[in-house]
Write a protein that binds this DNA or RNA. Structure first.
Lengths: 124, 124
DNA sequence: GATCAAAGTCTACACCTGTAAACCGGAATT
DNA sequence: AATTCCGGTTTACAGGTGTAGACTTTGATC
């Protein structure tokens, strides 16, 4: 469930659209990150090896599907991040951001709205 | 400004209280993480090497001070994390947390209050 | 059927990280 | 002065990560 940076780049593409051929992934990542085809192939192998991606043979090539769900990975990464820096709490993170001007007013408003919406939706 | 997990553990102690001797750090980390004295020494060396910590000779031993500011490191780590998973935005993170029941009501309330407070404090 | 090209597998290699033992120099103690 | 002990420096070593070349296989083409 742990995804290093470069493997994440591959997963991100598969989460946007699946299945995809290595060719498609190579094209996108070559452009977006300047990676060589080999690099992408290696990453795909590693992802398949760790069970994050499934490779279905389709004729001569493979079709790659993400097996790990994005939301799962996000949860994991988020938990880890908050744990490491904010005692596992979200509030201190927001406090930090606001203290450092990193929380733009638009974001603050969006957040406030989101919280207002939640207030009703969720149970007490 | 990048701090791997284990070095962060050392910094966390120095951010709580500085300066500290290696002995003090070793004691705490031996207890908290089960690390051998050598491990802590290695981490201190690495931190000094990368300029995150200063070692001031005091008689036979050193006193260690954090040079990197916690808030700086937090900002860096946060930016990186949000960038990696949420397109650099905070709102999607909160949305994710709320969708996955990871946002306890108490946290939600604390957050709402924080945002209300900010509303006045900050400029338009 | 021989050949080519593309997709996949193996090998590589340097750097980072976690974890720690070995060693060394000087201060404290006997 | 000899010995011990403690803090600091060096060396170690395996596993993960970024990045990619070399080699292999297999369908496609001449």
């Amino acid at each position: 469930m742990q995804l290093p940076e470069s493997e994440l780049a591959v997963m991100d593409l598969l989460w946007i659209d699946a299945p995809q051929t290595s060719e498609a992934l190579i094209t996108q990542l070559s452009e977006a990150r300047g990676w060589q085809p080999s690099t992408v192939k290696t990453l795909l192998s590693r992802l398949v090896a760790k069970g994050a991606v499934r490779a279905d043979r389709e004729g001569r090539r493979f079709l790659y599907w993400p097996l790990w769900e994005r939301s799962q990975c996000v949860s994991q990464a988020t938990r880890h991040f908050l744990e490491s820096w904010f005692g596992g709490q979200l509030t201190p993170l927001v406090a930090h951001l606001s203290q450092h001007r990193t929380l733009r007013p638009s974001e603050r408003k969006a957040l406030a709205k989101l919280l207002r919406d939640l207030e009703g939706t969720h149970d007490a």
